[in-house]
């Protein structure tokens, strides 16, 4: 395998990894504060994709407005999901919350199916994101550069929020011990809503980027990326934002590179994440960046 081919594949891998990472951060934050696998998180990718799609096609909005609208709409949906479905059963056994999460995920998917239909729609890619730069033999898609830089910017912002602001501090405190936080006089529901909003916005940007990279919008598009993003979050150490991003990158690189090296295995691409998951659980259940949290 020559160098330019390898570099090319690494760029593709990193691009995919960033998308996983953006989704994984949402999973990891919600799991951190609520100890809940938010199965509906992957579907937010689909919600945002449809909003952006309709914004551009039906309402002929300029793309920045449509993208921003998608982010805001998805954040609202994220908060509504928490308020409507998860908040009422905060004190119930964990299994109730997990079942509700599955219900919400299914509801979003099938509501989209009923309202919009199952035929995949091709996403209109704004010209700014089209084309590619040629560096020697290397062809770098402009979109990849956008995805990489946007992910980096968002990651810096999120880490800034989590570590430097008051609400971020409350989020971290919440991931340790809910009761203490209420004692500290912080409204835990506001913190949880904020967490959902932040995670949803990242998923929304991930969604818009996803359908520019793989331009088919359909009701079940979020299922597999969501599943893999959760694996990325576990790989990075669940509850750890930087870890989730790194986990996403590793998973993206692994998927692209394994298939590049061994084209025969391309059929098994979707199974790679699962195998990684099993290996982590067996060897390093707290993930690569995981810290020791008291149970």
């Amino acid at each position: 395998m020559d160098l330019s081919f390898a570099t090319q594949q690494v760029i593709y891998g990193l691009t995919l990894g960033c998308l996983y990472g953006l989704l994984a951060i949402g999973y990891t934050m919600v799991y951190g504060v609520l100890r809940l696998i938010n199965f509906a998180h992957g579907d937010l990718l689909m919600v945002s994709a449809y909003v952006a799609f309709f914004g551009i096609i039906i309402f002929s909005l300029p793309w920045p407005v449509a993208f921003l609208g998608a982010a805001i709409f998805t954040a609202v949906i994220g908060i509504l999901i928490d308020r409507g479905a998860y908040k009422p059963i905060r004190k119930s056994p964990r299994i109730s919350a997990l079942i509700t999460a599955i219900g919400v995920s299914f509801l979003l998917e099938n509501l989209a199916l009923v309202l919009i239909g199952g035929r995949p729609k091709s996403f209109p890619i704004p010209t700014l994101f089209n084309g590619s730069l040629s560096i020697g033999e290397l062809k770098v898609p402009v979109l990849s550069l956008w995805i990489l830089s946007l992910t980096l910017v968002l990651l810096v912002i999120v880490i800034g929020i989590v570590h430097k602001t008051r609400i971020g501090m409350a989020m971290r405190a919440l991931s340790r011990d809910i009761e203490t936080v209420s004692l500290m006089g912080i409204d835990e529901n506001r913190v949880i809503s904020f967490t959902f909003a932040l995670g949803s916005i990242l998923a929304a940007f991930g969604g818009v980027m996803w359908c520019m990279r793989y331009p088919a919008v359909e009701p079940f598009m979020g299922v597999i990326p969501g599943l893999k993003a959760f694996v990325a979050a576990v790989l990075g150490g669940i509850g750890n934002v930087t870890g989730a991003a790194i986990g996403g990158l590793i998973l993206g690189l692994a998927e692209v590179l394994i298939v590049a090296i061994q084209p025969d295995w391309s059929g098994y691409r979707d199974a790679i994440a699962f195998c990684i998951m099993i290996v982590i659980l067996l060897t390093r259940p707290r993930g690569i960046m995981g810290e020791n949290l008291p149970d």
Binding site: P88, T100, G103, V104, L107, N110, L111, V114, G118
Partner: peptide
Amino acid sequence: PGMRMVLFSLILIFVML
């Protein structure tokens, strides 16, 4: 298509809540 599943997921969420 999908209406049955919308109903089913609403039932599931409703029962849980």
